[in-house]
Design a protein around this nucleic acid. Sequence first.
RNA 1: GGGGGGUUUCCCGAGCGGUCAAAGGGGUCAGACUGUAAAUCUGAUGGCUUAGCCUUCGCAGGUUCGAAUCCUGCACCCCCCA
Length: 423
Amino acid sequence: MPDIFADLKWRGLIHQTTDDENLPKWLAAGQRTLYAGFDPTATSLHVGHLLPLVYLRRFQLAGHKVIALVGGATGMIGDPSGKSEERNLLSREVLEANVVGIRQQMEGYLDFGGENPAILLNNYDWMRDYTYLEFLRDVGKHFPVNVMMAKDSVRSRLEREGAGISYSEFSYMLLQAYDFVYLNRNYGCELQIGGSDQWGNITAGIDLARRMHGVQLYGITCPLLLDSTGKKMGKTASGDTVWLSPERTSPYKFYQYWINIADADVSKCLRFFTLLSHEEIEAIEQAEDPRVRQRRLAEEMTRLVHGEAGLQRAQLASEILFGREISGLSDAELNEIFADVPSQTLPKSALEGEGLSVAEAFTASGLAKSNSEVRRTVEQGGAYVNNRRVPGFDYQLTAQDLASETVMVLRSGKKKYALLRFV
RNA sequence: GGGGGGUUUCCCGAGCGGUCAAAGGGGUCAGACUGUAAAUCUGAUGGCUUAGCCUUCGCAGGUUCGAAUCCUGCACCCCCCA
């Protein structure tokens, strides 16, 4: 059995463990069962979820049994960990849709077939029929309030002026603690992994198991995903969340996200997210051309999330988009390459006669909000049509400026593209 | 309840009767350099039919040839006293 603990350590993926001494040996001694929980706060997972997901995958590949738990029940309450303010409750319908979406995505990352299949569970299944009275007697009885108050997630809220915490969020940890105990009883699960903000919830589960059944469980937390400037990762430069579903974040944008990872963070990302071996990663880190690191990272990540076909598409699009003048391509090719780029449709007649002013074209495409903005961009040399710089604000676009039969490719600055279709 | 201070363009923050679309910083955008980086440098940053015009300085009125600047009322915020 491969030494999973040493691997995690090498990758910098161990933040804390509940038993530094025995955990490595215990893991090395045989197949263990572990779980990680996922909050169904949206219909899709995002880059932030990838860390625990790949974490589970690593364990699975090392021969351990993994459980991915979707929090259909816990999501109804909301985990206060790492949140500075009380959260709004999600409606039941939204939650159900989210659970469905997330379950589907999980299938892409873990192997649910084969010799050592992963297990996918939803805690709503065992919490649904648990009555309040029974729960208080079985579980609540084992939680000293003074201990609960001391947990980071609760204390930081109480200390924060004007924040406070509701009773429901306060008792969230009981639910997660009980999940662990339930999984232990029914699936032999003995280890929980999560982000460092999950420490309080994980130890709550370990305490509960000891009190209820006298068993010893374990926990490992991984570091929070912060970049070198201390900001949470997983957002594009413009602040959009990087989702794992191609509908929400196109393979092209996803690929671009990783290509644009800062030098200071690229090593960490390679270690955290990819399944590449230590030797491979070290070789990449020492490559002559520093861009190899980002390219390789983007390649691995896009292949993992969007498959080989998605990667091909993203790479082709990137090549064209950051290349020279766009010409000699057909509608079909352009539509393929720019599948992810926002587009607007205008009547063909707009290009006739005088033609279409640059101002109209750029505002219609959504690349600029006002004519003044277009004027500025053009005057500063940042406006392009088919990757050719627009010579002046007075320039009129005609059928001559089409990149293919009906498509015109507009660009503002270095990276922002939009398509205009003329029909 | 009494007294004082505040509310400015995306944010912070100057301005205290005309030279104010409003200093400075941050952010953002664009350009150069580069590696589709970082750092740096340059420029831009209310709108428009752009040498000009129009709308902005909490809200509503007023004084004045002219108001972000003065007066009145209202709303919200902060501080001090009770």
